[in-house]
Amino acid sequence: MKYKSVFDIIGPVMIGPSSSHTAGAARIGRLARTLYGREPKWANISLYGSFAKTYKGHGTDVAIVGGILDFDTYDERIIQAIDIANEHGMKIRFIEEDALTDHPNTARIQIGDDKGELELVGISIGGGKVEITELNGFELKLSGHHPAILVVHNDRFGAIASVSNILAKYEINIGHMDVSRKEIGKMALMTIEVDHNIGDHILHEIEQLPIVLKVTKIVD
């Protein structure tokens, strides 16, 4: 196995006792915040498996809320994240789930306000690394450790080629691509992890494609 850095072995710089239950949880929460694009007014956080059993002792609760507040894993404000969220008027509810999941460290986060909602499922796979496995009902695989774009589009032939051609024109190399749809011919989600951050002018060009409904960027 190859490691990019020493932090892949000893874990990330973080607040809390556990890279899986604290740092990973914070990253899941922060990815939810990034994808939502703003601070929500409420959050329902469902915890499964090991998360549900140990979340208070390991700081999983404050870590997820800290992530939703856009705090990084090493931000000391994570310790007071729930109090800070309350001060901001955010309503938070934790739900301990009994259902079995594919991974023991699983969280389902629902956040929203009067303008819209977002729901995602994330797993903490160890060493502070995470994967997002579901977003608003779409199945996907997003690590959050590489620059990425999420493209919501109409499920039409040529959609993947149209987006890929724009990335190729600007010499953007695709490291991983995943496409998910709920129903043939309806809405679909393209998840593309790349080697370098993508400029806003490239995102704008993708957004102008007739089949594209929305583009969201995740910066490494």
Score class of each variant (00 low, 15 high):
A32R: 01
L203I: 15
S180Y: 10
Y36R: 10
E131V: 01
H201Y: 14
K91I: 15
Y170Q: 14
I206A: 08
H145G: 06
I92M: 11
H145Q: 12
R77Y: 06
I10K: 04
I211K: 08
N173H: 14
T73G: 01
I109N: 02
F71C: 05
K217E: 06
R27L: 15
A85D: 09
K2S: 09
E139N: 13
L69T: 06
T60N: 03
I123T: 08
L209G: 03
V219S: 14
A168G: 14
G11V: 05
Q80L: 11
A99P: 00
E87L: 13
V13Q: 08
D113F: 05
H146D: 07
L35R: 09
M177Q: 12
A161P: 00
I9C: 06
N173V: 14
F94S: 08
G128N: 07
M177T: 14
K53D: 09
I218W: 03
G122N: 02
I132E: 00
G137R: 09
S180R: 12
A188Y: 01
A188D: 05
S18M: 08
S19L: 00
G11Y: 06
I172A: 07
T106F: 04
Y74C: 03
G116C: 08
S46H: 14
G24C: 12
E87Y: 09
H201K: 12
D114R: 07
T60F: 02
G59P: 10
A52E: 07
I149R: 04
K4A: 11
H146A: 10
I45T: 10
A23M: 08
I15S: 05
Q110I: 12
V215D: 09
R33L: 02
K2C: 02
D70S: 13
H204L: 10
I160L: 15
I123S: 01
D200I: 13
V62W: 02
N197V: 12
D178H: 15
D220I: 06
M190T: 12
H58M: 15
H145V: 03
K129C: 01
F51N: 01
A63C: 05
L47F: 13
E96M: 05
V13S: 06
T22I: 12
I202Q: 05
G122F: 02
S162C: 05
G122A: 06
E193P: 08
D102I: 05
E117G: 00
T101L: 01
H88P: 00
E117V: 11
S124K: 03
T60L: 03
L135P: 00
G199R: 14
V152D: 11
R33A: 14
L209R: 08
G126S: 07
L35S: 10
V215E: 09
T191G: 03
I132Y: 00
S18F: 07
S143P: 02
F7E: 12
G67K: 04
R181M: 13
G137S: 08
K4I: 10
F94W: 12
D114C: 02
T22N: 13
G29D: 11
G137M: 06
N197F: 04
R181I: 02
